[in-house]
Computed example of a mutant assay.
Amino acid sequence: MTPHNDRPSDDRPSDDRAVDDRPVDVLAVGDASVDYFVHVPHIAVADDKAIGRLAGVHGGGMSANLAAAASFAGARAALATAVGADDLGRQALDRLAAQGVDVSPSVRVPGGHTWFCVIQLDPTGEKSLVGAVTEVKIPEVGQISDELLRTARLVAPLADDLDWAIGLAGRARAGGAKVAVDLEPDAVAGRLDQVRELARLSDLVFCNQRAADELADGDPERCAALLLAAGAGAVVVTRGRDGALCFAPGQSWSARGPRVEVVDTTGAGDTLAGAFTGSWIRGRSLADSLRAGVAGPSLCVGHLGSRAYLDAGTGIDSLVRNVTLDAAPPLQGF
């Protein structure tokens, strides 16, 4: 297994993240899908119709996107997912393998159908996504062994199902791995106790503005304070075109990427989480990891498909130089 790009030449160990000899830097556990993109004149709403044209078929899935972005950032990335033993499942895994992700921990379910998404894209590049979840999406708990978790320095469980993610996070930590999670708005709504428990087990917690709306009335500082108080090591709040904020005890940062022409926003948040995680687990500081995290989506949104940027031949170092990083006011009490 080789990463998609060479590791940055100044990647120096700064703590135990960079001296652990486990063979996998980032193990994403969750989903891989196939995405069908349709260009529409407007996003269809209730009792509406939008007739468009098929723009392309690309690999997707939040966990798959995160793993690919971690590889792009220089990490040795692997994915443990479940797909059907069908053409879509083969396509999903083959594309990931070509993009530098070790898919050997994944399983193909005989008779199963791989889940897929249909994505409407309006002329501005904004999207509306409909996921067709089949009987196969993520591995069953029993399909993820403790031995597999111990091969990874960091485990990133999909947080669609908080109880499932908490179980995996606890087992990963018990085996000596670090944990990163990306909180989904629908998953966290009304489940504050489970959110706190997952944060307690996590070294890195990512959430977008919609998740911050659910947890803290849209206030990113309050959201970060809540998650840090629960025990999270660091919290990253993503803000779309406005970049991202990173909070940890004693330090706070904001970063904004260069303005780019947006083709498709699909997978931008997954790319940020993956590039940040891949950089951080290789020994980079939170500030440098935030710059890498924000650089990834700046490239991602310029291409159709959540991972098409990987074929552009652009290294992450050239993008990082165009990210504006500033110290942010520290959180009170941390």
Rank of each mutant, 00 (worst) to 15 (best):
V133A: 01
T134D: 08
E135M: 12
I138D: 08
I138N: 13
E140Q: 15
G142F: 14
G142W: 14
S145K: 03
D146Q: 09
L148R: 15
L149C: 04
R150C: 05
A152G: 12
R153G: 07
L154S: 03
L154M: 11
V155G: 01
A156Y: 12
L158P: 00
A159K: 14
D160S: 12
D161T: 07
L162N: 06
W164F: 15
A165R: 10
A165T: 02
A169S: 13
R171V: 12
A172N: 00
R173G: 14
A174K: 15
G175H: 05
G176L: 10
G176M: 13
G176A: 03
A177I: 06
A177K: 05
A177H: 02
V181T: 03
L183D: 10
E184F: 02
V188P: 11
A189W: 06
R191T: 11
D193R: 01
D193T: 08
Q194S: 04
V195G: 01
V195I: 01
R196G: 15
E197Y: 08
E197H: 03
A199C: 14
R200D: 08
R200G: 05
S202D: 03
S202E: 00
V205T: 03
D217C: 08
D219H: 03
P220A: 04
P220T: 01
R222T: 12
L226P: 10
L227S: 05
L228E: 10
A229T: 12
A229I: 02
A232G: 11
A232I: 14
A232Q: 11
V235E: 00
V235Q: 04
V236F: 13
V236W: 05
